[in-house]
Amino acid sequence: MSVTFKEKPVTLVGTQLKAGDTAPDFKVLANDLSEVTLADSKGSVRLISVVPSVDTGVCDAQTRKFNEAASKLDNVKVLTVSVDLPFAQKRWCAAAGVENVQTLSDHRDLSFGKAYGTAIEELRLLARAVFVVDSSDKITYVEYVNEVTNHPDYDKAIEAAAAAN
């Protein structure tokens, strides 16, 4: 699959995943600098929203949309992963009033980006994507957005998260 950023082709590092795959583990940082892995949310459905930076318009809208949806989904944890520093994520969440989404930073070693095939080699950012992982760590939904500056299909992702319960 080819992905572009502002209409220029970019190289994604890692393996692109598909529904039915076992979700790979990763090690990212929470806003308090503690390590977070996939196993930390085992037993719940995870909607993983991947954005280049919460400080941009589309990423802001995406995170707010999934924050709103999270309050209506039972047994679904919504994780937003970017390479923003944990301090910036914490500041953004406080300013935006985002409380239902856990923001996670992949800035340290791109563990998530490489495992999920979203790390953009040329920019050291993550490509926009959405994954739904069920409570037994199977991926049930995947969307890699072809143009990083475009929105994902919010409705399909939210429906997939609700159906994964």
Rank of each mutant, 00 (worst) to 15 (best):
N100P: 03
V78Q: 02
D106W: 03
V101A: 07
A19F: 02
L47Y: 04
R124V: 11
A129V: 07
C59G: 11
T4L: 08
H151P: 00
Q89E: 14
V51K: 06
C93I: 00
Y144S: 10
F26N: 08
T63P: 01
A39N: 15
V10L: 05
E7I: 00
L33C: 02
A61H: 07
T118Q: 06
E143T: 08
K77T: 11
A119T: 14
V81D: 01
N150H: 14
D84A: 10
T103P: 14
N150F: 12
H151E: 15
A69D: 07
P52L: 08
A95V: 12
N165E: 11
H107K: 04
D109K: 13
P86F: 03
A94V: 13
V145G: 05
G117P: 03
D109Y: 03
F131Y: 11
N31E: 15
K65V: 07
Y141A: 08
V3Q: 10
M1D: 12
A160D: 09
L33Q: 13
E99P: 00
V101E: 10
D155S: 15
I48E: 01
E143I: 09
P152Y: 01
R46M: 08
R128W: 05
E122W: 03
V145E: 05
V58S: 10
F5Y: 14
A61K: 12
S135T: 05
R46T: 00
A19I: 04
D25M: 03
R128Q: 10
S44C: 01
A161D: 08
A61S: 12
P24S: 04
K65N: 12
P9D: 14
A129M: 09
C59D: 10
L125C: 01
F5V: 13
G117Y: 02
A95S: 13
E159L: 08
V76Q: 03
F66P: 08
V81E: 04
P86R: 11
R64P: 04
V98G: 06
D40M: 12
L47T: 05
N75F: 05
V13Y: 01
Y154C: 13
V51L: 14
Q16C: 02
N75P: 00
Y116K: 06
T37S: 15
V132N: 03
K72V: 00
A96S: 15
R91G: 04
N75I: 05
T80Y: 00
H151M: 10
P152L: 04
T56L: 11
M1E: 13
S44I: 00
K114Q: 14
K6L: 13
D32M: 13
F131W: 02
A39Q: 15
V45C: 14
A70K: 09
G20V: 07
T56H: 07
V98S: 02
A39W: 01
A96N: 12
L110W: 06
L47F: 04
I158W: 05
L29T: 07
A164V: 06
C93N: 13
E121T: 07
G43C: 09
L123N: 09
S136V: 10
R64C: 13
R64A: 12
V54I: 14
V78N: 06
Y154W: 10
A162D: 08
G43K: 10
V10K: 05
L73D: 02
I158N: 09
N31Q: 15
D137I: 00
D84R: 12
